[in-house]
Amino acid sequence: MFLEQFRLDGKVALVTGGSRGLGLEAALALKEAGAKVAVLARRASFFEEAKRHLGEALYLEGDVRDEGRLLQVVDQVEQELGPLAILVNAAGVTWGAPSWEIPVEKVREVLEVNLVGAFLASRAAAQRM
């Protein structure tokens, strides 16, 4: 009874980075709550695991650093699933090394994906919400 108030039946959710890790867990939870789920990942090969666990969903390839692609993704999500109601920014990269060994280019890449990408995805989605 208590969980019924958290149902998302008919709501449309987009999860960036939703093909694996925490993003996939978020996508699974949204689907379990009744949402129609779209998953965005940088490479189509990333969808193999998601498809095994998530099953039916809208799988879209794209990079969160590409604002034009994000606008296309939001358009496609709305055309195929309906009005976008939920965005989960789970796309992210990391560089596994001590800080004194990380090349500055990798730090910039992490910031571009994890910070700027989340901003761009939020902006693309917010225009429709």
Rank of each mutant, 00 (worst) to 15 (best):
Q5V: 10
R7G: 00
L8G: 02
L8S: 03
L8P: 02
D9H: 10
K11E: 08
A13I: 04
A13E: 09
V15R: 05
T16K: 13
T16A: 10
G17L: 11
G18S: 07
S19E: 08
R20V: 02
R20C: 03
R20I: 02
L22I: 15
L22W: 07
A26H: 12
A27H: 11
L28F: 07
L30Y: 12
K31M: 05
E32S: 08
A33I: 08
V39H: 11
R42F: 10
R43S: 13
A44Q: 10
F47A: 06
E48Y: 03
E49T: 15
A50Y: 02
K51H: 01
H53M: 11
L54W: 05
E56C: 08
L58M: 09
L58H: 07
G62D: 02
E67W: 02
E67M: 00
G68C: 05
G68P: 01
R69D: 04
L70R: 01
L71I: 03
L71M: 03
V73I: 13
V74W: 06
V77H: 10
E78V: 03
Q79A: 14
Q79P: 00
G82Y: 13
A85Q: 06
V88L: 02
A91S: 14
T94G: 12
T94D: 13
G96Q: 14
G96R: 14
G96V: 06
A97K: 09
P98G: 01
E101D: 14
E101P: 01
P103I: 14
P103C: 07
E109M: 10
E112R: 09
V116G: 04
V116S: 08
F119T: 00
L120Q: 03
L120S: 00
A121S: 15
S122A: 13
A124W: 07
Q127E: 15
Q127W: 09
R128L: 10
M129H: 03
